[in-house]
Design a protein around this nucleic acid. Structure first.
Length: 192
DNA sequence: CTTTGGATCGTCT
DNA sequence: GACGATCCAAAGG
């Protein structure tokens, strides 16, 4: 996982992030569903109307975490993409839990089955403990460095699916026709 | 299984 | 002052 791999069109990068691993402390999960958000040319992107205090991270270097608050109670996490100065991001919509499942269950008492832990963008943030204080965190920091960040994006060797599922994005009111959502076909931990 | 409506507040107009 | 890249409980089939 190189930072330069992310300095490109998020629509191209999004399917390549499938099967990568998101790690937060002792909790981790495999990315099984994502959505791409282009910045200046995508009306559905928070960065469409230019830089604001909230969207500043998206205009920074790739490989950092963009966390936003929505519906008055939920956090969602994105991987910042594109070259510095150009806003772009990939929303992480669902994970397949790998480690730290007991901690995830404590964080999400509402989840009845294991697949309810991370099968949604706000659910996975709740399960992993990601909040606004993690906004801007470097996902590619040195794991050996304690200050390297508690949130990391790791390639454990599993390649992305050869033919991922592809469809329209969810929950947006504009630019709904773009098929910029990608998922691992046949996975149980997909949002709906 | 599906549908429906309520909760709740940071951000931008 | 309005609205949202959502989730959940409740109710009906």
């Amino acid at each position: 996982m190189q930072r330069s791999d992310l300095a490109d069109d998020p629509v191209a990068i999004a399917p390549l992030l499938l099967n990568k691993v998101l790690v937060v402390g002792d909790r981790s999960g495999r990315i099984v569903e994502v959505e791409a958000y282009r910045g200046s040319t995508d009306p559905a992107s928070h960065a469409y109307r230019g830089e604001t205090p909230r969207t500043a991270v998206m205009f920074g270097p790739p490989g950092h975490l963009y966390v936003y608050f929505t519906y008055g109670m939920h956090w969602c996490a994105n991987v910042v993409c594109g070259p510095e100065g150009q806003a772009a991001a990939v929303l992480i919509r669902a994970l397949a839990p790998i480690t730290g499942v007991p901690d995830m269950r404590l964080a999400r008492p509402a989840a009845r089955r294991e697949r309810d832990l991370c099968n949604g963008p706000a659910k996975l943030c709740q399960a992993l403990g990601i909040t606004g204080t993690d906004n801007g965190a470097d996902l590619l920091g040195d794991p050996a460095d304690p200050a390297g960040g508690k949130v990391r994006l790791v390639d454990d060797g599993m390649p992305p699916p050869k033919t991922p599922g592809q469809g329209t994005r969810i929950g947006i009111r504009v630019a709904t026709e773009n098929p910029w959502r990608f998922w691992v076909e046949g996975e149980e931990n997909i949002s709906r």
